[in-house]
Simulated scan of single mutants.
Amino acid sequence: MSNHVAAVGESDLKLAYVHARLAEIERTRRVFLAAEGGMPQRDIARAVHLSQASVHRLVARAKALGVGESVEEIVLQRYVGKISTEQMLARLRATEAWVPRRVDPVDGVLPGSSEEDVEALLDGGFLTESEVDQILDAHG
């Protein structure tokens, strides 16, 4: 095994996951906005290397959940250094999308809520107990 491969650890894998997840969120947002702007789903599918059916599902999910910033997205942006902890906390305190998830026309009722998202981000090591307390207190 090479030294390079041996040097990849859990934090490297976590960072790769975060970058991939943020890219997925951004792709979904752009696909939705393109569809809302009138671009045919076949053209969108070709541009993002997905099937037309996958584009349809992404658009339906974005319609159900909205394309504003999610709790997850805000926290992950802080994790990769795009925003500071103070900015993250301020945006999470101010977020209005602090409700149980809506019904997705494709997948049905989506499990969870914003509070559960915060708890999952704590479990994943993306938030501290103190940060969770501050966020939940703001929405209590």
Score class of each variant (00 low, 15 high):
11 S>K: 01
98 W>K: 02
84 S>Q: 11
12 D>R: 02
76 L>D: 07
45 A>D: 02
112 G>K: 02
39 M>T: 15
83 I>L: 06
15 L>A: 15
132 V>P: 05
49 H>C: 10
119 E>N: 13
34 A>I: 01
50 L>N: 03
51 S>K: 03
124 G>R: 09
119 E>P: 00
111 P>F: 13
29 R>C: 03
56 H>K: 11
28 T>S: 14
17 Y>T: 02
132 V>Q: 13
132 V>I: 05
17 Y>N: 08
79 Y>D: 05
108 G>Q: 03
86 E>S: 14
87 Q>G: 11
40 P>R: 09
23 A>K: 08
10 E>N: 09
80 V>S: 05
24 E>Y: 13
67 V>H: 10
45 A>M: 05
52 Q>N: 07
35 A>L: 04
15 L>P: 00
98 W>G: 04
42 R>Y: 07
121 L>I: 09
96 E>D: 15
133 D>K: 15
102 R>K: 13
13 L>K: 12
84 S>T: 15
31 V>N: 03
38 G>A: 03
19 H>E: 14
120 A>F: 06
6 A>C: 01
5 V>H: 15
124 G>E: 04
8 V>M: 10
111 P>L: 13
55 V>S: 01
72 E>V: 14
32 F>Q: 00
78 R>H: 13
76 L>Y: 09
60 A>S: 11
79 Y>W: 12
11 S>Q: 12
129 E>A: 14
103 V>K: 00
136 L>M: 13
121 L>F: 12
105 P>S: 07
76 L>A: 09
134 Q>P: 00
50 L>D: 06
58 L>A: 03
81 G>F: 04
138 A>N: 10
77 Q>F: 00
99 V>Y: 11
54 S>M: 04
84 S>N: 12
121 L>G: 10
30 R>N: 15
50 L>Y: 08
74 I>Y: 10
136 L>I: 14
22 L>S: 07
18 V>S: 05
33 L>A: 12
47 A>I: 00
79 Y>L: 05
83 I>F: 04
106 V>G: 01
37 G>I: 04
45 A>S: 06
40 P>Q: 07
36 E>P: 00
23 A>G: 08
13 L>V: 12
6 A>E: 14
109 V>L: 13
88 M>F: 09
106 V>E: 11
115 E>I: 10
9 G>D: 15
49 H>Y: 10
28 T>C: 04
18 V>M: 07
75 V>C: 04
114 S>E: 01
35 A>G: 06
